[in-house]
Design a binder for these strands. Structure first.
Length: 197
DNA sequence: ATATGGATGCAA
DNA sequence: TGCATCCATATT
């Protein structure tokens, strides 16, 4: 029996829809040990019509990947310190990406704690993955992962459908941006211990 | 509240 | 080429 994995058609949809539907799904990364977690917070970033998006002022060397085919990983460095993990959405030619902001760790907590420089036993789940930078550090993701496929077998990263879909979901304003701050493009699983804030 | 620290993109 | 900006975190 083959494990079910989200396929390209899942990501080739409207970005906000993908962002919302990713809640509850399981992100699995395999490189130097297997780690996984349940996605509990995402943000949608659109194309030209979204000034907060890297693609908001058209295609640049960095943002070009957002205009490319869906189901691809987009990783960038923020504040010169942290990495952020995104999934490219929409059909090829239409820009869009979903930022993975937080998850609940499931498999490989010891590995994540090690990567996060936390002492075994002296941390809570939310210390591992409650934030885009923390999450990347815990998963061992950096810019080397930029451009990798979410659907090719053996790429080291994939997303599995939600086993237990979230009971309640909310859409709230995005954070850390100065443009289009009012748009409710940030999605959260209500009640999770691992949300940002 | 504040130090951190590098790539990106645009103006010059 | 220079420089303001940036989808954050840990520590004080």
């Amino acid at each position: 029996m083959v494990k079910p994995v989200l396929d390209e058609s899942f990501f080739a949809r409207e970005t906000c829809r993908v962002a919302r539907d990713l809640l509850g799904c399981v992100l699995e990364v395999e490189e130097g040990g297997r780690v996984s977690g349940r996605i509990v917070e995402t943000e949608a970033y659109l194309g030209e019509q979204d000034p907060a998006s890297h693609a908001g002022r058209g295609s640049t060397p960095r943002s070009a990947i957002m205009f490319g085919p869906p189901a691809v990983v987009y990783v960038y460095l923020i504040y010169g310190i942290h990495h952020c993990l995104n999934f490219v959405t929409e059909p090829e030619g239409c820009a869009g990406a979903v930022l993975i902001r937080a998850m609940e760790p499931v498999i490989g907590k010891e590995i994540m704690a090690l990567r996060r420089n936390l002492e075994i036993g002296g941390y809570r789940d939310r210390d591992l993955t409650s934030g885009p930078g923390k999450l990347c550090q815990a998963l061992g993701i950096d810019r080397v992962w930029n451009g990798r496929s979410l659907v090719e077998v053996g790429s080291g990263i994939r997303v599995l459908p939600a086993q237990t879909p979230p009971t309640k979901v909310v859409a709230v304003p995005r954070v850390g941006i100065r443009q289009a701050v009012d748009l409710p493009y940030r999605f959260q699983v209500v009640g999770s211990e691992c949300l940002t804030d």
